[in-house]
């Protein structure tokens, strides 16, 4: 696979390190009543066959965390954005 880093250009996949589903969002708050939400965030995954957004770290390059949209069956890469450019979750907007 080759991944197009927004900062470095198209680079071979081994420059990057994978870290799972990028659609999960860290909950806000640590109330015991939020345990289900936290459990979902830390442990449960959609794990789809097909398109998914996932975190890749350009560990052998600019060290940016990227959100790569990729097909888990064909391994086709559709698009890449930097994680830091992602819009804040609606939930966080509410919180702030």
């Amino acid at each position: 696979m080759r991944i197009h880093c927004p900062y470095c250009g198209e680079r071979p996949a081994e420059e990057f390190t994978f870290q799972g589903d990028a659609d999960v969002r860290r909950p806000q708050g640590n109330e015991p009543s939020q345990m289900d939400e936290w459990f979902d965030y830390v442990y449960l995954r959609e794990n789809p066959r097909g398109r998914m957004k996932e975190y890749w770290h350009h560990s052998g390059g600019c060290r940016s965390w990227l959100i790569v949209e990729r097909d888990t069956d064909s391994h086709e890469v559709f698009g890449v954005t930097a994680a830091r450019e992602r819009k804040l979750s609606p939930q966080r907007k509410r919180a702030s």
Binding site: A22, H57, A82, R84, E85
Partner: peptide, 15 residues
């Protein structure tokens, strides 16, 4: 740890 810090900042708390 560095990778972790980068993740925490860039993916969790870019603000």
């Amino acid at each position: 740890v560095l990778t972790h810090l980068e993740f925490c900042h860039q993916a969790l708390w870019p603000e």
